Amino acid sequence: MKKYNGFTAVKGIDFDVRPGECFGFLGPNGAGKTTTIKMLCCFTPVTRGTLEVLGHDARRQPREIKARLGVVPQEDNLDPELTVAENLLLYAGYFDLPRAVAQERVEELLAFAGLEEKAGVAVEHLSGGMKRRLAIARGLINRPQLLILDEPTTGLDPEARHLVWEKMRQLKAGGVTLILTTHYLEEAAQLCDRLVIMDQGVILDEGAPRELVEHHVGREVLELAPVNGRAGEILPLVAGEILAYHTIGQTLYLYTSNGRRLWRQVQGLDGNFSHQALRPATLEDVFLKLTGRNLS
């Protein structure tokens, strides 16, 4: 639990992260994801409860945790006047790495991030995607067992986002355990082995992305609009084919594991729907079912 001046930002949550996996926190802004990350990184103390990171108590052994931890914060805190290589060397100094070892790791990480040609360029002249790759490289300078990334691709264009995803997959393949916070559905589905869905400081559910989708909403979603208050009339006619449903405005969302059969049933309904769409179910639908609102 974490409280700030009487406000409970994170309530009684419980989770564990397995070695070598990518574990995600999915939720909207204000869900408590970043506060949870700050506690994991020992940046802010736990108000109540127990938190163990890499076998160490976060309250009693923060130095031991930080020595084995890599962090990529949500906000860009690179030194803009320094060059790419200088940023990495400066950060290596925080871990008391010998100069020769630090230089070797800088060259290794520049290659990993695809920034060799930018080594002598000031950070202020880099693109957003390059800055994020540099931030990830910096978080790896101490060869951490656990890398924590808080909203690592926020604000990036699609190409830059995919490049960052590629680097994260390489790290996981190399045995690094990753913890990721995100509000991007595709990012969570692409990268996470398991995740928790958070909202208003609590965990709503936990599991593998595909398992969560199939458990809560099935494999497909049929959207019908406008329903004009006819949901109570429509639902009994399709009850045998749906796992759950939700209405937002004039759109009725029907969750099913047999979209084709449900589609055929709907075609026989007496209604003039200007919008009918059958699509694969996503984590957005899970969040919508659990909270009654979109993930935004």
Rank of each mutant, 00 (worst) to 15 (best):
P209E: 11
G93R: 04
P98A: 04
E52C: 12
K167N: 15
L283I: 03
T256C: 07
G55W: 06
V10G: 02
V202R: 06
A281Q: 00
A281F: 01
R261P: 06
V123D: 00
E124T: 14
T282C: 05
R63V: 15
D285H: 04
Q250K: 08
L69K: 11
V84E: 07
L147I: 06
A225R: 03
L149D: 00
M130G: 08
E284N: 11
R133T: 03
G24R: 01
V196R: 04
N228W: 12
F15W: 05
D16W: 13
E211C: 10
A102C: 08
T36Y: 00
T282N: 02
G218E: 00
E284A: 08
T153K: 07
S296H: 14
F15E: 04
F273W: 03
L171M: 05
P62R: 06
M130Y: 09
Q103F: 04
N29A: 07
F273M: 03
E52T: 12
R293Q: 11
G24V: 01
P62I: 05
G70M: 07
T8G: 14
R219C: 09
V121K: 07
N87Q: 09
A85D: 09
L252M: 09
A100P: 14
E52Y: 13
D14R: 10
E21I: 03
H162M: 15
E107V: 13
R18C: 10
G240Y: 10
A85I: 06
L235D: 03
R210Y: 09
G128W: 04
G292F: 01
C192A: 08
L97Y: 03
L252S: 01
L90K: 11
A188F: 03
L147D: 01
E233H: 13
G271H: 06
T83C: 06
V106C: 04
A113T: 07
V176H: 10
R219D: 07
A85T: 10
L288C: 09
E107L: 13
E166L: 11
N294V: 15
L147R: 01
G268V: 01
R60W: 12
G240W: 08
A239I: 12
V227R: 13
C192S: 06
V71D: 03
P80D: 11
Y245G: 02
E220A: 11
Q267C: 11
V286T: 02
V10K: 01
E214Y: 08
G93V: 00
T35D: 05
K11M: 05
L51V: 14
I37Y: 01
R105W: 04
L180Y: 03
A281D: 02
T177Y: 00
D57T: 14
G207C: 06
I197K: 02
D199S: 10
K289F: 08
A58C: 13
D270S: 15
P209T: 07
H216L: 08
N272E: 15
G155A: 13
